[in-house]
């Protein structure tokens, strides 16, 4: 029974997917200019051409590394500074305008300044860090502030050490806030990192290839690379969602 229901859901998904492909095809026919809207077959051919090339996988690895490195930095700083800001109002007041400023600044401004500061390969790392950090930080701070003060009172009466209070009470408490932050940051991190690659041209990078596809007016290739970015983003999010679900079980 369950199997039938599952396969039904699959069929539904498949039909919806096919409908969208049909819409793409109709648009392609209506526009009738492959430069603007390429055909499905040409994009698939471009995609296939990509994945059989070893270089493609090196490029993917390099881009994935950049996003993860940026995300990792934002986790390290976002959690540590977030916890401190959640506990200390003065520090929060000090950091908050800085984070607000980052949020309000267009990504492109940061990319341009990062191009001056860093080597091309490090620019996307910095950018994805800078964009993810406010998300993680904000979620961690609101998690800390949301804590039940009665639990903290209890911990203090029983003279638990501060480090223990943080490890056993604050960190488990902020976990759901943290998880939500990471999921959001993953999605954003990908996009800004690729955008930064377009401008900084590292030797191995999805963004650099998007840029050259545009330079050669190779629309199918542009679409193919974009599909790659979307797929990778999906894969990461579902991996993380799975991990979050698993860790919730042990909670």
């Amino acid at each position: 029974m369950l199997f039938i229901m599952r396969s039904r859901r699959w069929i539904k998904k498949l039909v919806i997917g096919l409908l969208w492909l049909a819409l793409w095809h109709i648009t392609y026919k209506l526009v009738d200019r492959a430069l603007y809207v390429p055909s499905i077959t040409s994009v698939m051919k471009a995609l296939l051409g990509l994945i059989i090339d070893v270089r493609f996988w090196q490029i993917i690895a390099a881009s994935v590394y950049r996003v993860l490195a940026g995300l990792f930095l934002s986790l390290v700083f976002g959690v540590s500074i977030g916890v401190l800001c959640g506990l200390n109002g003065l520090l929060f007041d000090f950091i908050n305008p800085f984070v607000k400023a980052i949020r309000a600044t267009p990504v492109i401004s940061f990319i341009i300044i990062a191009l001056i500061w860093f080597k091309s390969t490090n620019v996307p790392i910095f950018i994805s860090f800078l964009m993810c950090f406010p998300i993680i930080w904000t979620n961690v701070v609101s998690g800390i502030r949301n804590i039940d003060v009665k639990l903290i009172e209890m911990a203090k009466v029983y003279q638990l050490k501060r480090s223990l209070i943080i490890r056993k009470i604050y960190l488990p408490h902020i976990k759901p806030f943290f998880t939500a932050g990471v999921i959001m940051a993953l999605g954003l991190g990908w996009k800004v990192s690729v955008a930064a690659e377009v401008l900084s041209h590292p030797q191995y990078a999805i963004g650099s290839n998007l840029h050259s596809a545009k330079a050669y007016l190779d629309t199918p290739l542009l679409f193919a690379w974009t599909i790659v970015v979307i797929l990778l983003s999906f894969i990461f999010e579902s991996f993380f969602a799975l991990w979050a679900k698993e860790s919730r079980k042990t909670l």
Partner: peptide, 16 residues
């Protein structure tokens, strides 16, 4: 002085 304190509410950690 160390306090064994029983609060009005149980004040247990839900994740433990």
């Amino acid at each position: 002085v160390r306090f064994s304190y029983i609060f009005q509410e149980e004040r247990l950690l839900p994740w433990m």
